[in-house]
Amino acid sequence: MSLYERLGGAPAFQAATDTFYRRMLSDERVSRFFDDVDMDGQIAKQRAFLTFVTGGPAEYTGKDMREAHASLLEKGLSDEHVDIVVEHLGGTLADMGAAKEDILEVAALAESVRADVLGR
């Protein structure tokens, strides 16, 4: 059983996506990257990301991730911002009741996305 299923599947992740996105919008270290984005579209993407990293049914391609973040690189997106996202990801999953080892596993999977996000 995937972590996605153990944490309650689609309904739980719908609420968790809101929590995750609120955390990032409220964090002044990263909030500026979301200034000009369409909120509905962004929430759908965050939901797909959370679903993907917890082993749920999500469509994920490195190419999409690269394209989505290309303009943010010009605004200064760097490793420290990816670290902050991973931090909020862990916090969100902890709020949902995930165990520490699960969170570490997810963080490792999220690491694999880093190169795509930063266009390396």
Binding site: A10, P11, A48, T51, G56, E59
Partner: peptide
């Protein structure tokens, strides 16, 4: 289509009487 699991919403269509379970979320 995308995730084929009711998450990404890429396959959204419209009809007059769709099955309710296909409208969840």
């Amino acid at each position: 289509s995308g995730c084929r699991a009711g998450t990404c919403c890429k396959c959204m269509l419209r009809a007059d009487n769709p099955p309710p379970e296909s409208q969840r979320g």
